[in-house]
Design a binder for these strands. Sequence first.
RNA 1: GCCCCGAUAGCUCAGUAGGAUAGAGCACAGGAUUCCUAAUCCUGGUGCCGCAGGUUCGAAUCCUGCUCGGGGCACCA
Length: 541
Amino acid sequence: MREKIKSIIDKYLKEKGYSLDYVIEYPKNETFGDYSTNFAMILASKLKRNPKNVANEFIESLYSNIFDKVEIAGSGFINFYIKKEAFIEELMEVYNKKENYFKPKIHKNKFIQVEFVSANPTGPLHVGHGRGAAIGDSIARILKFFGHKVEKEYYINDAGLQMELLGQSLYVRYKQLLGMDDALPEDGYKGEYLIDLARKLIMEYGENLLKMEESEAIEFCKSRAADNILKYIMETLEKFRVSFDKIFNERRLYQSNEVEESLKLLEDKGVIYEKEGALWFRSTDFGDDKDRVLRRKNGVFTYFASDIAYHRNKFLKRGFDEVIDIWGSDHHGYVKRVKSAIEAMGIDSEKLKVILVQIVNLLRSGEKVSMSTRKGEFVELENVINEVGVDAARFMFVSRSTDSHLDFDLELAKKQSNDNPVYYVQYAYARINSIFNQLGNKTDLDLENAWNLKEKEEIDLIKSLIQFKELLEKSYKKRDPYFITKGLLGIAEKFHRFYNKHRVIVSEETIRKARLLLIETVAISLKLGFDLIGIEAKKRM
RNA sequence: GCCCCGAUAGCUCAGUAGGAUAGAGCACAGGAUUCCUAAUCCUGGUGCCGCAGGUUCGAAUCCUGCUCGGGGCACCA
């Protein structure tokens, strides 16, 4: 609809020989029509003319039949009042094309990777990971829907100190359970889950680990812990309806020599130097605050080094056209240097999009819950899912734009009441379904009936579908699923309003069929939105 | 000290790439169900848009400075 208006204006401007940036928007107030544009004001200021005259000339030249009326308002806005027939035509289009209506016509297919969660298997996932998971998975779904080839990946830093500490921590717990006196290392993992794991170890191996060399025992504990925890993480994610196409291990980058190769590549580009025994990347050449260490004095590579290799692998080995990394906001300082390195390797750093997910404040009865993995005082995603359900959790996580903080109140999300927007939206779908159930299968819909729609609530509902299309597109362009929740709420609101005021199952066949067509189309749209953010389209509630 | 994100109604947040009287949900009060699910709907009112300047026909939105909150600034991960 917006495009139709835009093409009319563009055509007019083109005939006049102008081109300018203007907007077509929804007026704040319904009495100002369905759409509104400021182009006359912009053109007028360019020509130093009176905006109202400019607007008037445009209106007089109009001959389109989709408008009831077109008015000048305020200091030169042009307000468009759309004929209801035009909206009904739009509805028919949705009905005909189904989900495809919501896909834009043109775009080139890309091969896109979405890398997310990527938590090290050193402990269970917490709510922060949950938000990343919900966002990443939804983005992948959206990109797929819009026709791209998408690969979802989980990256594990399994080559560094963290995993070492994990092994040590488990070993200590194991010894402690056997009555030995030992303390966790300073930065060790203090969570309960390691005690559980230690208990399992004792059940399976008794005291046998004590007979090993300590380093061997720790190595054993490390891989046991990692395997177990990763398995647990994946189970949680699966429950959360999040799956991955690939798990990528950091260790692999060393085994295949890709870390060395990447550094060689950078060296050839002349952006590497040695200082004080360490190897540095001159990221300041690319706008970073300071240069970064790649290999420490002690000969050990930094994570940055393997991350460079990892991104080289993504772009040069696997050939992704676009890579989306979803990180916690606490990694924001890292973005610049990774992009610098990519640029240095001759890759367009625009192809890497880093989405920083802001913090989740978990509240329980108003009390803020702290979430540090190492201290072991975090709330597990698993618990949250069990408490509030997958649908509510996923919806909550994506219901704010990614760059704003999210307050997640467990008590609130648990409530099955209308504080909880996910139920509001799902309920709309269930109601539609219930109407169709009522009718059994005698619901032959045919398009022509749609012309009988005339009530304000009916037309408003159609408008909400058109807006949903726009929001979907925005969600896609901005790579943020948040806009989908907004669209869903918009449709649900209009639907509930319609439902309350008008009955679908009425004796008059023409009206009944028209409304059935309408709600069928609404159901299609809702279902699509649900699928894209990974929540269930419940037929009953 | 430097960098990032934020500051809008009692609370949680929108505000669509400068536009009309700044919106929604929650909370609060009242009302609606012989009939497709009351997990719904309807009616009520709140704002120095953090502060101070600037840019222009016009600023919550852009620029500059400042204040406050959160996070980040390692040869840690």
